[in-house]
Design a protein around this nucleic acid. Structure first.
Lengths: 125, 125
DNA sequence: AGAAAAAGTTAGCCTGGGTTTACTTTTTGT
DNA sequence: ACAAAAAGTAAACCCAGGCTAACTTTTTCT
């Protein structure tokens, strides 16, 4: 069974974010946003296409499928929760909170993410 | 300039932990503890030897050098701080706290780790 | 419309960190 | 003391995920 790697989650997430901002989403945009080369982005997108998480016409723009969007939103939600927690609760700068959230959003267990959510929701801040 | 990877930090950390528990530290023990094959452990230890972080006689037991111990302690301290935080503050089970701490201890910024330390120290728990 | 620029792709390479197989060296138990 | 078991090593391989160089396709600008 196929399982998304951290790297592939990053690709899905950035496609989602760029789309949400109403920006066009091409290979070049993705590569720039993730600070990787265009061929790296091409390769990753090819994998995501094979897994039916994104769609793309030849030489065309990139879209998330229903399934891809679901996965992207899941990651992005974790991202938001984590970075808010780091910043508001732990007092980490916004910039660092962003960076660290990007790194750990892929690997934290559901249990820990729920712990963070609960903390934020239960007004302990 | 050489920089420790997450994986190599894991090796240093486990050598430190096993040593601290008074256990003998051989390739087999390390491999078992990290759930990797013996050749993987051999290869990693070879790198750490080249970087003067561990010492080992041929076919012999493995010791941390001064420098290696310093690096190992730095990682292990982060580990303890993080897992305590996850467990005591976020209410994550001990087991999951351990697992998650193992994963993120290598990648969290100094700033975030300090944020966690401050939280624990300033008696907000 | 056609040349130049930008976007996308392909092929081939590299590195880290695993693996298995097969070997050598060391330790252990009778 | 010596055979069997355990420990360590070496070689060769795999895979993810980067990269550059070189190419094709598409877009843009004069």
């Amino acid at each position: 069974m196929f399982c998304l790697t951290s790297s592939l989650e990053d690709y899905l997430e950035i496609i989602y974010i760029l789309s949400e901002q109403g920006l066009k989403v091409g290979i070049t945009d993705i590569a720039k946003a993730l600070v990787v080369s265009k061929p790296s982005a091409t390769k990753a997108i090819k994998i995501l296409k094979n897994e039916n998480l994104v769609s793309q016409e030849k030489y065309g723009k990139i879209l998330l499928t229903k399934e891809g969007e679901k996965a992207a939103v899941a990651v992005y939600d974790k991202h938001k929760v984590i970075s808010k927690f780091l910043n508001k609760v732990l007092g980490v700068s916004e910039k660092t909170a962003e960076i660290d959230a990007c790194k750990i959003e892929h690997i934290l267990s559901k249990e820990t993410v729920n712990g963070i959510k609960n903390y934020l929701e239960n007004g302990k801040m």
